[in-house]
Design a protein around this nucleic acid. Structure first.
Length: 476
RNA sequence: GUGGCCUUGGUAUAACGGUUAUUACGUGAGAUUGUGGAUCUCGCAACACGGGUUCAACUCCCGUAGGCCACCCCA
């Protein structure tokens, strides 16, 4: 009998004999089914990598179009920079000692032994391009936007990947606070247009001299409370004092509240700049929240810094968990010079696309709003060989005239084809069978009412468009 | 980089140290071979990988990989 083969003893012997025991040893009804049985390795993704599947497309498309649209309205030109650049460029721009550089960069040697890195962010590249292509000779400011993948060798978590996408806007060559405000407006509009309510957190971290003085004061203050601090904060006190401000430990909270605020250390000029930014935002009715504890992780920021957070409905925790910031940015007046260019002020921001999409989905779910799906205009069902040949032609003709046609040539019965049409929720179906091919006609079926009419194939295109346009108007 | 939880068809799940691993969604075929949304029938499809304990492991133990969560940090 068959199962005798798997009697214990037998199995044990086989196991010892073959170190790599084939899985199919267990008699299975369909031994040829899984990848392992087929003797092929199946692959898993590298840690922190993810596919963005077709079902996500509508959100991604919407996000991209929204950004593109804003870029057009505010006259930003799209820049696409390489994914791979000299590693030292990022070290210089983002700063040694920052986590992004010290522990999160994908850095390796290419075949010539050059140290290269996958970009962890794109601002550095934009600045590099600005310098390299002599853009200071253009009319200032130069406004650029980008959309693309960034890489950080970080421990993955909800809302955090090793390869992720950012959309960013940068304005180079203008120090006016109105530019800061314009950018914040764009960030705000991006979410407004997408349909996700957000909150802008804003602060000013001054220029390096001011920041240095503030740091000293902050350290002095925290030193006096050292024994009450959490372990992390004790570390931060020496390593990165500004980060003391975003400690979430309960024991540090009261200390944090009493801590000196950076605003008080700003000189006249920085203070004015900040006030102006806020005034413009008021003028533009962009709501914002002042956060005296907001500092950012990259070294190059000066003065204005801001972050964007989703506003979820009451009682709904953000699905992004602790990674709730959708994006952020700020002014970086010294970076161009730091990177070897002629000194030029600049301001910019970047938003996480994955985080934005996931927050948007969560928000829509909570509000029970359905995101519009890509609509197909009509489904073409065919019956028989001749009809199928004719159908291909018809599909192409309709496509040329701008009608979106769905079809399924791998299904032959009219029944299952109409079923597919139904699932796609198309308003109309075209039916093309042997008889119709012969007569030079085609059936138009109204999927809602089930009413059908037989029309001349030559008139289909015109008739269909007429029906569809009426449908469009009705929908609005 | 540190710590905790986790891994069963494409998705969501059930169960058990021992015959053929449950169910739903999905998907395919069909229920008078030219008409969808309902119902029914029959298919498809999984124990992450490797090692150990055991007569016997999907189940217990260890390792690896991956996921999730928190910290760190950030988009």
């Amino acid at each position: 009998m068959y199962y005798e083969l798997i009697m214990p003893k037998q199995k044990k012997i086989e196991k010892k004999k073959f170190v790599k025991k084939p899985k199919s040893e267990k008699p299975k009804a369909h031994a040829e089914s899984g990848a392992a049985e087929r003797g092929k390795k199946s692959y898993a993704l590298l840690r922190g990598m993810h596919d963005i599947l077709p079902k996500e497309e509508k959100y991604w498309k919407a996000a991209y179009h929204t950004a593109e649209n804003l870029a057009e309205h505010f006259q930003f030109g799209r820049i696409e920079s390489p994914l791979l650049e000299e590693a030292s460029m990022f070290v210089r721009s983002i700063g040694k000692g920052t986590d992004v550089v010290d522990k999160e960069m994908y850095i390796f040697e290419d075949r010539d032994g050059n140290k290269v890195a996958l970009r962890p962010e794109e601002t550095a590249s934009v600045v590099r391009a600005y310098i390299m292509h002599g853009m200071w000779n253009m009319v200032q400011p130069v406004k650029m936007w980008y959309w693309g993948s960034m890489f950080r060798y970080d421990r993955p978590q909800a809302g955090r990947f090793r390869q992720f996408n950012q959309v960013g806007f940068e304005i180079l060559g203008d120090a006016d606070p109105v530019q800061d405000a314009e950018l914040i407006l764009i960030a705000h509009n991006f979410y407004k247009d997408l349909g996700l309510p957000v909150e802008i957190h804003i602060n000013s971290i001054g220029v390096p001299e001011e920041r240095q003085k503030y740091k000293t004061a902050l350290v002095e203050y925290y030193r006096s409370k050292r024994s009450y601090l959490c372990d992390d904060c004790k570390q931060r006190l020496n390593k990165n004092p500004l980060r003391l401000l975003d400690c979430k430990q309960e024991r540090c909270l009261p200390i944090k509240e009493e801590a000196p605020q950076i605003i008080a250390w700003l000189e006249e000029e920085s203070k004015n700049h900040f006030m102006k930014v806020l005034e413009y935002l008021d003028e533009l009715s962009v709501p914002y929240v002042l956060k005296s504890t907001l500092v950012r992780g990259l070294d190059y920021y000066t003065r204005t810094v801001f972050e964007v957070y989703p506003v979820m409905p009451e009682g709904d925790e953000s699905a992004l968990g602790a990674q709730s910031a959708l994006g952020g940015g700020g002014r970086y007046d010294l970076l161009v010079e730091e990177m070897g260019g002629k000194s030029a002020p600049a301001v910019g921001f970047s938003l996480g696309v994955e985080r934005s999409v996931s927050a948007l989905k969560q928000y829509l779910d909570a509000q029970q709003i359905k995101f519009p799906t890509q609509q197909v205009d009509v489904f073409l069902a065919q019956l028989g060989d001749q009809a199928r040949r004719r159908a291909l032609k018809t599909i192409n003709e309709l496509r040329t005239s701008g009608v979106k046609v769905a079809y399924n040539f791998s299904k032959n019965s009219l029944k299952s084809q109409l079923e597919t049409a139904n699932n796609l929720q198309v308003p109309y179906a075209l039916i093309l069978g042997q008889k119709e091919v012969q007569d030079g006609t085609i059936i138009i079926r109204d999927m809602e009412s089930g009413v059908q009419e037989i029309v001349d194939q030559k008139k289909v295109e015109h008739l269909l468009k007429k029906k569809l346009s009426r449908f469009d108007v009705n929908a609005k």
